[in-house]
């Protein structure tokens, strides 16, 4: 009698043979010691494979994924960035459209302020100086932009675009830095 194929023995263990094939295999296994040994080996192996050795996954996997997906900080930083952006846009708008430095109320305040309110005048002058410098920078950059691309979008609009890009970059960089720091803890 011809010996069983290895595949047949495995299919017999898997119970994937039909009834006839299964009974032929069973009968052969009774009489053939060689095939029976193989059958025992496969059966033992099947049992061992069905009980795998699992290594416990490190806890940092779950921690990392949860932090990455549900970190609360991007929400806070979004709010912070939004407030900062709104503030800068608002102040820029006041300065550009109401001519902050030459505004009659500011001028009147500067002229009438006595020593008790000097600090307010100083703050106003300080803000004016910052804006004048930033405005000058934007003016130069806009001139360069005009020379390179031959398009004049105006210093004010150009300034607002640059500010928005700056805020966006700031937001993303702070997010990355935060995640790196959190990852180390």
């Amino acid at each position: 009698m011809e010996c069983l194929k290895n595949k047949t023995i495995q299919e017999y263990i898997d119970k994937s043979l039909n009834r006839v094939e299964s009974s032929i295999t069973r009968d052969h296994l009774i009489v053939c010691e060689k095939c029976r040994t193989k059958y025992e080996q496969y059966k033992k192996m099947e049992k061992l494979l069905n009980n795998p050795i699992y290594k416990e996954p490190p806890a940092k996997i779950e921690k990392f994924v949860m932090n990455r997906l549900f970190s609360k900080i991007p929400t806070y930083s979004s709010i912070f960035a939004l407030i900062a952006l709104s503030f800068i846009l608002l102040v820029s708008w006041i300065y550009i459209y109401f001519d902050f430095n030459n505004n009659s109320i500011i001028q009147a305040f500067k002229l009438t302020s006595n020593s008790a309110f000097n600090w307010i005048t100083s703050i106003i002058t300080f803000i004016s100086n910052i804006f004048s410098s930033v405005y000058a920078i934007f003016k130069v950059l806009n001139k360069l932009f005009m020379i390179i691309f031959n398009v004049n979008i105006g210093t004010q609009l150009f300034g607002l675009i640059i500010l928005s890009i700056f805020i966006g970059v700031f937001f993303f960089v702070s997010r990355i830095v935060y995640k790196k720091l959190k990852g180390h803890n």
Partner: peptide, 27 residues
């Protein structure tokens, strides 16, 4: 986690890589 990590670990045979790939998988 357990089954995915063990599958990946046995496939790549490097624990650090398995950790990274398991994290990537969940994300």
């Amino acid at each position: 986690n357990k089954r995915i990590f063990n599958f990946v670990l046995r496939m790549v045979r490097n624990e650090e890589v398995a950790i990274e790939l398991t994290q990537d998988f969940f994300i």
